[in-house]
Design a protein around this nucleic acid. Structure first.
Length: 794
DNA sequence: TTGAGTGCATTTTTT
DNA sequence: ATGCACTCAA
């Protein structure tokens, strides 16, 4: 269909009902490039899904002609779920998924052209680092100078710039070596038949770039491409997109994003892609979604005022019909502990007032800040949930099990081999492994293939390991995924190991959970939404791949491969799934618990009440962000994201004193307070709250810290501890406030040039008296009191 | 092979 | 303060 003579489509009433004019315009935008600036809480997901539903319902496109890309599995899933409630669609024909998920799907179909083995497996970030570590060792390079993590960063960065090892600009020795490591790592990955995350993107980009037939096929196929969170795309992802839907090809590309919520520059996201998109695609349709359906007015006023301080914005202001609502409450605490204590009392009050605990979120800039809050919640016996810990498929025992499974699929996967060759221990030590690695390196073969080259006791132990893997494989041929897992867990000795381990109960549970996950994958997911190769006729010349019989009975057989007719086993599909989706991070996700997370991980979520904690110079905005150019603006966007998470109530708090890295820091309140509209704020008196003043508070403080988190078993499972009065620590008794002419350590001071600060240290006396003051954005200063005019404040 | 002891870094993170 | 990665002795 020619997009330029767009016919009038009958507007199906149900779908478009209740859309505001901007949303309506976005949903029914003509089939040409469009940029949607979607503010926080403006119904972005709704627009995306309604758009797809509308396109399908009006017959402008069939499922096979749609590609919708997101960043997270969660977003992709949500889109799919909402879509299916709007419209009975055959989801299989559509390409809805994450960038990486779609790349995987693409490479499974074109593995040969991509130069990959058919059953290639995917390395997660941790696997990739350990693979790089092996490369560095094999090259006998100094691990101090070439830190595996940093090298991994370098390689991922290069790939995201579309660079292969020969393309690296080797201007110095260091870069030359890095490029050499990159090359060796690539070779190793090829030998082992694995790809990392960045490779998924780059490899599929290259296939599209270098294979005209494939490129033309997909460009013809995808009439409508939709991209979520466009502000988070990196250089490679944008280039990838342009391969599927280049400017001027008549495809409709709908990019949805919010430049004000771009908070991932540090990992390569380029907000600039939005304006590049607008220019390169000659976008006529820029639609702003500014009507907010989430928050009350005061909250939005705060967000708008704050973000207006940023330059280089595409320009957008949120508005609401909901009225001003409650003021934004601000609390100044004396210590991080008092901050946590106050926050908990406030949260309890909200809960007593009928708010679910899971509707209350506590946000912080860095993970280290969660400890005090956790500790306080724990002691108060309030259930809570911390986001961002280890996720299911990242747990050690699960990774062990997956490594065994990978070896069943591909014994030449050295990463997996090394992970489990001596776990559980079977007498294969570092020496044996070194010998084996030497042999493998010498012959250019895998560790598995080199076992026979190792002599003696070590050799026979290694052989026994190989036999173990081989026999498991032989034993489980033709069995269900569940049976394969059960057999593997027994034969490998993992089950027995954790049965005998005194702390093994939870790990055993997780292994059981892994079996469940496999079962669920096979039945519910109808495995291989992502993993299964495309139907044979997918690439038939001139094929209009809409309406193909995609339906495959789930849990039956995998779809045969496009070229050879070979089948991707359920096991291989499950392993792929495990790499692409790390799973949830907490067992009791369903419980009504207060939600703790970093501001970054709060993006995309919303809560009735939000506490933004630790609003102090150096912490938020973070000190490390102030050095680089766009750093402060990104911090401000981060704050903007945090504010706009709140529906009804927003609390901001900061503390005069904070324990960080084992040292007490005296912080100045965040500059962001100066950037919020005073009329929307309500400052709460710090004096009437918490533990009162001085000694009593510090004493309580010290004791609470001492109790720590060590004794905790798990969130929300513990009752309030009954305790005797703790003894007064000696350090407390001796403590005397340092004072000088009305100045006190820990209290505020004013300096005519540097403004407000916090007194950190006082030294010397008389003419020699010096003071150390933290002036926040002006930094830490030493001042001679005989010269500097410091006046106490408060 | 395993345990205790030492050194070191410690913004944000999905796939 | 604390966790983790790595070293060295038993």
């Amino acid at each position: 269909m020619n997009p330029h003579d767009e016919p009038q489509h009958p507007a199906p009433g149900g779908l478009l009902k209740n859309l505001n004019p901007e949303q309506y315009a976005a949903v029914t935008a003509p089939a040409e490039p469009a940029l949607i600036l979607a503010g926080a809480g403006s119904g972005k997901t709704r627009v995306l899904t309604t758009r797809i539903a509308w396109l399908l319902q009006t017959g402008q496109v069939s499922p096979g002609g749609i590609m919708a890309v997101t960043f997270t599995n969660k977003a992709a899933k949500e889109m799919l779920t909402r879509l299916t409630t709007m419209l009975p669609v055959n989801a299989r024909g559509m390409w809805i998924g994450t960038f990486h998920g779609l790349c995987n799907r693409f490479l499974r179909a074109h593995w040969k052209l991509a130069g990959l083995p058919q059953g290639f497996q995917i390395l997660d970030a941790t696997d990739s680092v350990s693979a790089i570590k092996r490369v560095i060792k094999a090259m006998s390079l100094d691990e101090e100078r070439y830190v595996p993590k940093q090298v991994s960063w370098f390689i991922a960065g290069a790939k995201e710039d579309g660079l292969r090892p020969p393309d690296i600009d080797v201007h110095d020795e260091q870069t030359r070596t890095l490029a050499a490591i990159y090359q060796a790592y690539e070779d190793q990955c090829a030998r082992e038949g694995v790809v990392d995350f960045a490779e998924l993107m780059l490899r599929s980009y290259e296939v599209m770039r270098d294979q005209p037939a494939v490129r033309e096929h997909y460009q013809r196929r995808f009439r409508h491409v939709l991209v979520d969170e466009f502000q988070d795309t990196n250089k490679l992802q944008y280039a990838w997109l342009k391969m599927f839907a280049p400017p001027g090809q008549g495809q409709s590309v709908l990019a949805v994003g919010d430049d004000d919520q771009s908070i991932y520059a540090f990992r390569g996201a380029r907000v600039g892609n939005m304006s590049d998109f607008e220019r390169e695609y000659r976008v006529k349709n820029v639609i702003k979604l500014e009507q907010n359906y989430r928050s009350f007015g005061n909250i939005l006023d705060a967000a708008n005022e704050l973000i207006s301080r940023n330059s280089r914005r595409l320009g957008k202001e949120l508005r609401t019909d909901a009225g001003p609502g409650e003021p934004v409450r601000v609390y100044e605490a004396s210590s991080d502990f008092a901050e946590a204590q106050w926050l908990i009392e406030e949260a309890q009050a909200l809960h007593r007032g009928g708010m679910d605990r899971k509707e209350i979120a506590v946000l912080y800039r860095s993970n280290a800040q969660s400890r005090v809050i956790e500790s306080a919640l724990f002691n108060a016996g309030i259930p809570y949930r911390v986001y961002g810990g280890l996720r299911f498929f990242e747990r050690a025992e699960v990774k062990h099990a997956l490594a065994y499974l990978r070896l069943l699929e591909n014994p030449n996967d050295d990463t997996s081999f090394l992970r489990v060759v001596n776990f559980p221990a079977r007498g294969i030590g570092a020496r044996a492994i070194e010998l084996l690695q030497d042999a493998a390196r010498a012959s250019g073969r895998s560790l598995y293939q080199s076992v026979s080259a190792v002599a003696g006791k070590a050799g026979s132990n290694l052989k026994a390991f190989n036999d173990l893997v081989d026999s498991t494989r032989n034993l489980t041929v033709g069995h269900t995924l569940r049976e394969i897992l059960e057999q593997m867990l027994e034969i490998s000795g993992l089950n027995e190991f954790y049965r005998n381990d005194k702390d093994g109960a939870e790990r055993l549970e997780n292994l059981g959970e892994l079996i469940n996950a496999a079962e669920a994958f096979v039945t519910q997911e109808g495995f291989g939404k992502d993993a299964v190769a495309l139907p044979v006729d997918e690439l038939a010349p001139g094929a209009i791949s809409e309406g193909l019989p995609h339906a495959v009975a789930p849990a039956q057989v995998a779809t045969p491969d496009a070229e050879t007719g070979e089948i991707m086993s359920p096991l291989a599909a499950f392993l792929t799934h495990a790499s692409l989706e790390a799973g949830d991070n907490q067992a009791q996700a369903g419980q009504d618990a207060v939600q703790l997370m970093t501001v970054h991980s709060a993006k995309g979520l919303e809560f009735d009440a939000v506490f933004i904690t630790g609003l102090e110079e150096g912490l938020f905005p973070h000190e490390n962000s102030l050095s680089d150019g766009d750093g402060l603006e990104e911090e401000r966007r981060l704050m903007y994201v945090a504010i706009t998470r709140a529906r009804q109530r927003l609390y901001l708090c900061f503390s005069q004193t904070r324990m960080l890295h084992g040292q007490t820091r005296y912080n100045v309140k965040s500059r962001f307070f100066d950037e919020l509209p005073e009329a929307a704020l309500k400052w709460l008196s710090p004096r009437n709250q918490g533990f009162g003043s001085g000694f009593a508070r510090e004493y309580q403080d010290a004791w609470q810290r001492g109790s720590g988190l060590k004794s905790m078993v798990g969130a929300g499972r513990v009752e309030r501890p009954s305790y005797a009065e703790p003894p007064v620590p000696a350090s407390m008794k001796k403590k005397v406030a340092e004072e000088h002419g009305g100045l006190r350590v820990g209290k505020g001071v004013f300096h005519t040039k540097f403004g407000e600060g916090v007194l950190v240290t006082l030294e010397g006396s008389g003419a020699d008296a010096r003071a150390q003051v933290n002036f926040g954005r002006h930094g830490m200063k030493w001042l001679a009191l005989s010269v500097a005019k410091l006046t106490p404040i408060d």
